Simulated assay, not measured.
Amino acid sequence: MSMPLGVSLNPHEPASKVDHIAQRFSAAAKSYQEHNCLQRLSGASLLQGFSAKGAILDIGAGPGTAFANKATGDDIRVYALDIALGMLQQLKATFPEHWCICGNAEQLPFADASIDNIYSNLALQWCHDFSAATSEMARVLKVGGEAHLSIVAAGSLEQLSNLGLRVNDFLSLKSLQAAFDSTDWQLFDVKLVPMTVYFQDLKALLYSIKGVGASVQSSVQTVNTSDPHPHLGQLRGRRDWQALQQRAERFRESQGLPLTYQIAQFRVRRQGGSV
């Protein structure tokens, strides 16, 4: 089986924001699936319209996706791309048949027109330049190939805002849609889907958001969700943390503490263009 690789990434690049994100995900790889309830919910929705055939590129593959039951042909090849080597090592243990590639969505290490379909579940909100990612996807997709994408969008994490926490910004559905060049893409299904996940306590809720590229700050000091075990000292002290927990309890529902995301789902097709 050959790989449609084109360019390679420089392993000696200086440390950057991408490197920092990769290190965080690698460190969290073994426990990631315990906390990725949103990813599973979003993935189940995205896979409903996905047909696995030929060469499939899974961007931001994380712990991996089972495509076999979505296959429309006998010969599918899954290329699992992630910036975190630790995630890929964990994925390979579960999906030994997948080709694992450490790389970035904004510089895909694949040859032009070498991929039949692209799948990406809750990864592309990490992009520094989303337009660069859509251009790269257009480059590597064959004409007629499809990209099925879910992306965290503006309006997410409203409950955290209601707690007085500042959350980082996500792109709006309109801004995300504008990144698809009409000469390259046909957009045949674009929608914003609210998804709510529930947690036993505030600590688990705050830890969960790091998996989708979110960060929060209190009005006093950063709440460090990169720590797998957030502790009380990350606010000004135990009293501040307890007060935050009490405010959170006001929003509790029967299933637990809710956290709502606005998920932009794109089902787009590569049409004749520059490639």
Results as ranks from 00 to 15, higher is better:
Leu9Pro: 04
Arg166Ile: 15
Gln246Asp: 01
Ala133Phe: 05
Ser150Gln: 03
Trp126Pro: 05
Gly272Ile: 14
His128Gln: 15
Ser182Asn: 12
Leu173Gln: 06
Leu235Trp: 09
Asp19Ala: 15
Leu88Ile: 13
Ser218Asn: 04
Lys30Ala: 15
Ser51Ala: 13
Gly60Ile: 04
Arg139Val: 08
Trp241Thr: 01
Gly43Ile: 03
Ala66Tyr: 03
Ala80Ile: 07
His128Thr: 14
Gln255Tyr: 10
Val275Met: 03
Gln125His: 12
Phe110Asp: 04
Leu9Thr: 09
Gly164Asn: 06
Ile59His: 02
Tyr207Cys: 09
Gly256Arg: 00
Glu158Asn: 13
Gln246Ser: 08
Cys100Ala: 10
Pro4Cys: 06
Gly272Cys: 13
Tyr198Asp: 03
Ser8Met: 10
Gly256Met: 00
Cys37Glu: 09
Thr196Cys: 02
Gln90Lys: 08
Gly60Thr: 04
Asp19Thr: 14
Thr94Met: 10
Ala178Gly: 10
Met195Gln: 13
Arg270Ile: 12
Leu124Asn: 05
Gly54Ser: 11
Ser51Phe: 09
Ile56Lys: 03
Cys37Val: 11
Met87Asn: 08
Gly62Val: 06
Cys37Trp: 03
Ser156Ile: 00
Leu5Arg: 13
Arg238Gly: 02
Phe110Thr: 09
Gln265Cys: 01
Arg239Asp: 06
Ser218Ile: 04
Trp185Thr: 00
Arg236Gln: 14
Val167Gln: 05
Ala123Asp: 01
Glu146Lys: 11
Lys17Asp: 14
Asn36Met: 09
Phe25Ala: 07
Phe50Val: 05
Leu91Tyr: 10
His98Cys: 08
Gly233Thr: 07
Ala93Gly: 15
Asn117Trp: 11
Ala29Asn: 06
Ala52Cys: 13
Ala22Asp: 09
Ala29Leu: 07
Gly273Ser: 14
Lys92Leu: 13
Lys174Phe: 06
Met3Gln: 11
Thr65Lys: 01
Ser51Asp: 12
Ala44His: 11
Trp185Gln: 04
Asp19Tyr: 04
Asp19His: 13
Ile83Gly: 09
Arg139Glu: 02
Leu206Gly: 05
Asp82Pro: 08
Ile83Met: 15
Lys174Ile: 09
Ile209Cys: 02
Gln90Val: 14
Leu41Gln: 04
Leu81His: 06
Thr134Ala: 04
Met3Ala: 11
Phe25Gln: 01
Ala111Tyr: 07
Pro63Leu: 06
Ala52Pro: 06
Ser208Leu: 12
Lys174Met: 05
Leu257His: 12
Ser51Met: 03
Thr222Ala: 14
Leu206Ser: 05
Leu244Ala: 07
Val197Pro: 01
Arg239Gln: 14
Val140Ala: 08
Pro258Glu: 10
Gly54Cys: 12
Asn36Pro: 05
Ser2Gly: 12
Glu106Gly: 04
Lys203Arg: 10
Leu187Ile: 15
Pro4Trp: 09
Ser16Asn: 03
Glu249Ile: 01
Leu202Cys: 12
Met195Asp: 01
Gly164His: 02
Leu163Trp: 01
Leu157Phe: 09
Met137Thr: 07
Gly256Asp: 02
Ala132Gly: 05
Val197Tyr: 02
Pro194His: 07
Ile209Asn: 04
Ile21His: 15
Phe188Gln: 12
Phe67Lys: 08
